[in-house]
Design a protein around this nucleic acid. Sequence first.
DNA 1: GTGCATTCCTTGCGAGCACAACTAAGTTAC
DNA 2: GTAACTTAGTTGTGCTCGCAAGGAATGCAC
Lengths: 152, 152
Amino acid sequence: MATKWLSVNEMRAWRNFIESVNTMTAAMENDLARFGLTMGDYEVLVRLSEADDERMRMCDLASVLQLSPSGLTRRLDGLVSAGLVDRVANPSDRRVMFAALTPRGRVKLAEAAPDHVASVRKRFFKGLTRDQIDELGNIFETVRGNLTACPQ
Amino acid sequence: MATKWLSVNEMRAWRNFIESVNTMTAAMENDLARFGLTMGDYEVLVRLSEADDERMRMCDLASVLQLSPSGLTRRLDGLVSAGLVDRVANPSDRRVMFAALTPRGRVKLAEAAPDHVASVRKRFFKGLTRDQIDELGNIFETVRGNLTACPQ
DNA sequence: GTGCATTCCTTGCGAGCACAACTAAGTTAC
DNA sequence: GTAACTTAGTTGTGCTCGCAAGGAATGCAC
C-alpha cells in the first residue's frame, strides 16, 4: 500500500521534528527557570500583556493557551500567589473571573522576555536562512489548517 | 537592538510552530487512545521493535526517549501490567534490566501503527509539497544541531 | 415568575513525569 | 582485599494537568 508507511524523506522530517520539539522544550523550560517561571507561566504573562487592559477572561485565556479550565485554574494559582497576576471579579457577569497582570507581573515579563527571545534564537532560528524561516511559517500554517480541518 | 525581538517572519514561524505542536500532540494522543496507548507507550513499542532481539537496556531506552530513569520505570510499569513488555534481567550484569517486547506487544504495535501513520499524514504532512518536506528535514536537522551544540 | 439548559469556574481524583535519595552491582586504586 | 567511585534501576515526594462532578450565575421557554 503506497500510503501505509512514511517515505524516507517524511520519516527524516518527522523524527527530526519530534526530537527537536522534545529537546527544545526541555532546554527552554530550563532557561526560563532562572526567572522562576515555567513556559506555561510565561505564556500567561505574554497573553495578558497583549490583551486590552492587560486582562482576560479565564475561559478565553484557557482557549488561547489550549488548556483545560481546571488546568488554567491551577496554573493561575501559582501566578497569583507569586503576585504576578490577580483574579478580578466581573460585576456585570459574576460567573466570569478575569486574570489581570499586576505591576510585578509586568516587570517580571520585561525581565524575562529578552532572555527568552535570545533562547529562541539560539536554540531554534540559529543557522536558518531567511527563506527557510519564511518556508517554516508557510509549512506550519498548512499544518494548523490540517489540524483545524479535522478537529477530533 | 537589532536582535532583541523576533522579526515579523520569525514570529509568524514561531507561533505557527508552537500552536501546531500543542494541537497536534493532543490530537494524536487522542488517536492512539483508541488502542489503549499513549504516545509515550507507542514510542516504547516502536523503539523496542527496532532493537536487536526486540529489547533494550532501560538506560538506553530512557536516553532515546529523552526520559528520566524514574519516568521510564513508571512508564514501563503500565506496559508490563498490560502484557506488552517484559522486564528481563541480564545475568552478565545484574544491575541491568532489559525491556523486551512481548508477542502481545508486537501484535499491539502492528495494530496501532497503520492508524498512527495515517494520523501523521492527515495531521502533519497533508498539503505539504515534496520540497517542503525535504526542507523540513533540513531545518530540523539544523535545529537539532543547535540544541546539541549548547546542551544546557 | 418557574423550570431547564448553558456557561464559567473550582475541586476531588488519578495519571505522568522529574528530582532527590536509596539499594544493588560492578569497577578502579592501592 | 578493601575502600572509593561509578553505573543502573527503583521508590518517595511534589508538581502539572485532564476528566468528571459540583456550584453559582445567566439565559431562555412558557
